[in-house]
Amino acid sequence: MQAFVKTLTGKTITLEVEPSDTIENVKAKIQDKEGIPPDQQRLIFAGKQLEDGRTLSDYNIQKESTLHLVLR
């Protein structure tokens, strides 16, 4: 499924993900596309910070959801 990641600069990245993907996995995909190390990434969805060990389905993130990427 497709999900979108919006950065603070307003850029939107499109990712191909599965509901079973972990947040860690998603961060690795963002690193592949953008070169941002996962340890600098914080992903926010519905106002919550997403934890590495959880999956997209844990957070009820469905296709075409938009996550927000904040860098630390």
Rank of each mutant, 00 (worst) to 15 (best):
A3E: 02
L8W: 15
R72H: 13
G47V: 02
E18Y: 15
A46C: 10
K33F: 08
Q49S: 12
P37I: 05
K27W: 03
K29F: 06
N60F: 08
K33H: 10
P37C: 07
I23L: 04
V17N: 01
E34I: 15
F45V: 03
D21P: 00
T14Y: 10
S20T: 13
G10K: 04
V17L: 10
I61G: 02
T7G: 06
E64M: 10
R54V: 06
D58Q: 08
D32G: 09
T55H: 06
K29L: 09
G53S: 12
P19V: 08
L43D: 00
I30Y: 02
S20Y: 11
R72G: 11
D39W: 14
Q49H: 12
Q40A: 10
S57W: 08
I61P: 03
T7K: 04
L71P: 09
G47S: 05
T9C: 14
M1I: 11
I36G: 02
P19R: 07
T66C: 08
Q41R: 01
Q40R: 13
E34P: 01
L15H: 00
Q41C: 06
G53I: 07
Q31S: 12
P19M: 10
T14D: 05
A46Q: 15
N25R: 14
N60C: 06
A28Y: 12
T14N: 06
V26F: 04
E16A: 09
S57R: 12
K6Q: 11
T14S: 10
Q2I: 15
I36Q: 02
L71E: 08
L67R: 01
T7D: 07
R54N: 11
L71N: 07
N25T: 14
H68G: 05
K48Q: 14
R54T: 07
L8V: 14
P19I: 09
T9L: 10
L43M: 03
T22K: 09
G47E: 05
L8I: 13
V70E: 13
V17P: 01
T22Y: 08
I36W: 14
E51W: 06
N25G: 09
T7E: 04
L15C: 02
T22H: 04
Q2A: 09
D58V: 03
G53D: 12
L50G: 01
Q2L: 15
L56F: 04
S57F: 10
K27V: 02
T9W: 15
R54D: 05
M1L: 08
S20K: 09
A3S: 04
D21S: 07
F45E: 01
H68S: 06
N60E: 08
T14P: 06
E18T: 15
K29C: 03
K48R: 11
T14H: 08
I61F: 10
L15F: 07
R54C: 10
D58N: 05
T12L: 13
D21N: 07
L56H: 00
L43F: 03
E18A: 13
D58T: 04
E34M: 15
K63F: 09
D39R: 11
R42G: 06
N60K: 09
Q2K: 14
V26M: 06
I30M: 03
F45A: 03
D21C: 06
D21W: 09
L15N: 00
N25F: 11
L43Y: 02
E24H: 12
I13S: 02
E16F: 14
I36F: 12
A28P: 00
A46E: 15
G53A: 10
V5T: 01
K6M: 10
L8C: 14
E24N: 08
E34Q: 07
I61Q: 03
K6S: 08
F45M: 07
P38W: 11
Q40E: 12
R54E: 05
K63N: 15
Q41S: 04
T7I: 12
K29Q: 10
F45H: 09
F4M: 07
S20P: 03
F45C: 04
A46R: 14
S65Q: 08
Q62V: 14
L71D: 07
E24A: 15
R54S: 07
L69H: 00
S20V: 05
I13H: 03
G10R: 03
E16K: 09
Q31V: 04
K63T: 14
S20R: 09
T9K: 10
Y59G: 01
K11N: 07
Q62T: 14
I23Y: 01
V70S: 08
T12E: 06
D39T: 10
T14Q: 10
K11G: 07
F45I: 04
L8T: 14
K6L: 11
E16P: 04
D21M: 12
H68R: 07
T14K: 09
P38H: 10
V17G: 01
T66Q: 07
V5I: 13
T9R: 09
P37W: 06
T66Y: 09
R42V: 15
F4P: 02
E34F: 10
S20L: 09
E18Q: 13
P19H: 07
S65Y: 08
L56A: 02
Q41G: 03
K33I: 14
E51H: 09
K29H: 04
L8S: 15
G47M: 04
P37N: 07
D58M: 05
P19L: 12
P38C: 09
T12D: 04
H68T: 11
I44W: 15
S65I: 08
R42L: 15
R54P: 04
T14L: 12
A28I: 14
A3P: 01
Y59H: 03
E64F: 12
L56R: 00
T9Y: 14
I23C: 02
F45W: 10
D52L: 05
T55N: 05
P37D: 07
N25S: 14
V17E: 00
G53W: 13
I23N: 01
D32Q: 14
K48E: 13
V26I: 12
L56N: 01
N60V: 05
T66E: 10
E24L: 15
D32F: 12
G35V: 02
Y59I: 04
F45L: 07
P38Q: 13
K29P: 00
K33D: 03
P38F: 12
L67E: 01
T66G: 04
D52G: 06
I36E: 02
Q62C: 08
L50D: 00
V26H: 00
E16M: 13
M1A: 03
K33G: 04
M1W: 12
R42I: 15
S57C: 05
K6E: 09
H68D: 08
D21T: 10
A28E: 10
I13L: 08
L56E: 00
Q49Y: 14
Y59R: 00
K63V: 08
K27M: 06
H68Y: 15
E64P: 04
G35R: 06
E64N: 15
N25H: 12
Q40M: 12
G53E: 11
N60R: 07
V5S: 01
D39S: 14
N60T: 05
M1D: 03
G47C: 07
T7F: 15
K48T: 13
D21Q: 04
Q40I: 12
I30S: 00
Q2G: 05
I23G: 02
Q49A: 12
A3H: 02
L8P: 15
P19A: 10
D32E: 14
I36T: 07
E24V: 07
K29A: 06
Q2H: 12
P37M: 07
D52R: 04
V5M: 02
P37E: 07
I44D: 05
Q40D: 10
I44P: 00
T9S: 13
K33Q: 11
Q49R: 10
D32Y: 10
V5D: 02
T22Q: 04
D58F: 13
G10I: 02
G53C: 07
S20M: 11
E16H: 11
D58I: 03
K11T: 08
M1Q: 04
D52M: 05
K48I: 14
V70A: 08
L15R: 00
Q41F: 14
I30E: 00
